[in-house]
Design a protein around this nucleic acid. Structure first.
Lengths: 209, 209
DNA sequence: ATCAAAAACGAATTATCGCTCGTATTCTGT
DNA sequence: ACAGAATACGAGCGATAATTCGTTTTTGAT
């Protein structure tokens, strides 16, 4: 019987104190990623910043990658939460309104800790467990597709799959780039104009002429 | 006088032989990046694969980062070359045709060594010198803007700067995602449809109704 | 043929970092 | 108050790189 190596730390933190340790470690990782960049995020450094010993770190995480993955996952959860709230009840809305709202929410979502988002997008190599953390996630995709399906009769696209791809990819890229690369070049009023333009782009593409 | 540290290797390779060495090193780096991934690209490994000693490596490159930067730069040059050729004489074309051609060329450009492109996009942390190697480059942007300016009268957009951003970002993201993430999910015919759809997206947005 | 500059070599040094493990401390239930 | 379980500690081991430098080989000019 090949026994699984006992080196797999179980994070089953049962006591209050240990849960705090886990949180401190994830927080510290996020702070380091933002303030010092990915390469400075060594396990020793993370433990130090968290005010915890390396030993404790390895009690709860199998390694650095797991820490980073935890940070990314937490961040994506926050973003998705923002997103879900923002698009609630959108199915009932007409196309123009719905799209505009989706774009606006996408911008808002990208503004949930933009610094961290930037690091995640630009500095973290997607290797190993991080590989599956795709650029845009599936829930998003499904959400949008569902809207398109329920409004199919108003649309002039025939391949909904393809249309979803086109729309989701465009909106994601536009909001991502605007917030993370051009937030200085784009003053607030330009950002609003960008939301309008993006919405027009997508609406024009979808709407039956 | 604070003298610059002599540790800065100058790549002034004067002889034929040394230029070959430099090439071999860059080639080897690219091959390793593609076949084994970013973390396996150590200086010793690169030298080994290049059939060259580590010492020689440091004669011409200050470190691993410089090697990777050289690979990325070379790759971007190739892509831009493809791009330039593909959009030559496009200024004379009408909007629909021009946009379609641009999209098609963007797909073609993304297919110049997609494996390497994938590694560059997903695995290489943009830190230090790699930071400025932006996702989409300025020449592209300028090229597109020039087209829009010369066809301004046909368009219904008023802010050309913003319009350029919207179009370039969308086209880049759509072609990038399609080629690098969905090339298996998208059979060739779907890819063609995608080019059509992308062109329609952008054309509809730009064209005066 | 001779020599100095250029290029190449690679073992050895140095640096970094992930991770372990024996020990100390704290908590929880009785 | 006590015991055992959970948590925390952190110096130090081992592995993997990065980088140097004294030496050798090749080249081009004279």
């Amino acid at each position: 019987m090949a026994r699984k190596p006992l080196t797999e730390p179980r994070k089953t933190a049962s006591q209050e104190r240990s849960r705090a340790t886990v949180d401190a470690l994830i927080d510290a990782t996020a702070r380091i990623l933002v303030k010092e960049g990915f390469d400075k995020a060594s396990t020793n450094r993370i433990a130090e910043v968290a005010g915890v010993s390396v030993g404790s770190l390895y009690q709860y995480f199998p390694g650095k990658e797991a820490l980073v993955a935890a940070v990314v996952e937490r961040h994506q959860q926050e973003i998705m939460q923002t997103f879900r709230e923002g698009v609630a009840g959108i199915l009932a809305q007409p196309l123009e309104k719905a799209i505009r709202q989706i774009v606006a929410v996408a911008v808002k979502a990208h503004r949930v800790d933009p610094k961290l988002h930037h690091v995640v997008a630009e500095q973290i190599p997607r290797v190993g467990k991080l590989e599956k953390l795709a650029t845009f996630n599936g829930e998003n995709y499904t959400l949008f597709r569902t809207y398109l399906e329920s409004h199919r009769h108003e649309l002039r696209v025939d391949d909904l799959e393809l249309a979803t791809f086109v729309c989701v990819t465009s909106i994601e890229a536009l909001t991502h780039n605007a917030v993370l690369h051009y937030s200085k070049a784009f003053p607030d009023e330009t950002m609003e104009a960008l939301v309008d333009e993006s919405a027009r782009l997508v609406t024009g593409y979808l709407k039956a002429s």
